[in-house]
Amino acid sequence: MEQVTRRDVLSRGLRALGAIPILGTAFAASSPLVRFFRPTVKPYEISPPPDVGEGGELVVAKASELTQAWDYRYFLYTLRLPEYTPRGAQHKQVPGVVVRLPEGAGDDFMVISRICPHLGCIFNYERDPKGVLEHCNYPATGPQFCCPCHFSVYDPLQKDAQGRRGKVISGPAPRAPFQFAWRLEGDDIVVYGMEEGSTA
């Protein structure tokens, strides 16, 4: 076998530096190319942050209406999302659910987006455990959230490692659902923002 000297290694390494101008050109060309397809990218940006939506405040339910444990209410929270059309944005209604948790759960309510963090379907709140079995093939023991697309099941009583309520207990979902930012104002449950990252 041919002997490889230190000189060979060094000179090959130095020659490989020739790739830098090529890569540099590729990166310089990539920004305008990307802007061609995605107008919200700023000039010279090669790692653009994802487009995200903005939402206002919304009273989603009254605490006095959800008196029993596991009472729930569906709501639609409007987000203004960037769209690459002459209009520039669209208003999209994000389905959410507020659930009254039983005593000893740690919180009184949970307010989450019903957009499945797996691939974006809308999952349902199954108050009757039989519904989870029927729609997600999962033998549930209590009320749970169940996504009809790929059978992900979330448990409202458990939190994941990041402290999000609705830990995944079955199916392919990679994380707990997206959480709404909310506060209690007297009797009103007010949503004022949403965790970023979901595809609405």
């Binding site: 990307v34 919200t40 487009d51 995200v52 769209e83 944005a89 669209q90 999209k92 595809t199 609405a200």
Partner: peptide, 21 residues
């Protein structure tokens, strides 16, 4: 490193959500 996955999603959908674009 560059969030290219999300970028592909944005380019495919033409925005942050499925719609007219």
């Amino acid at each position: 490193w560059f969030h290219w996955g999300k970028l592909i999603n944005n380019i495919m959908v033409g925005g942050a959500a499925i719609g007219q674009a």
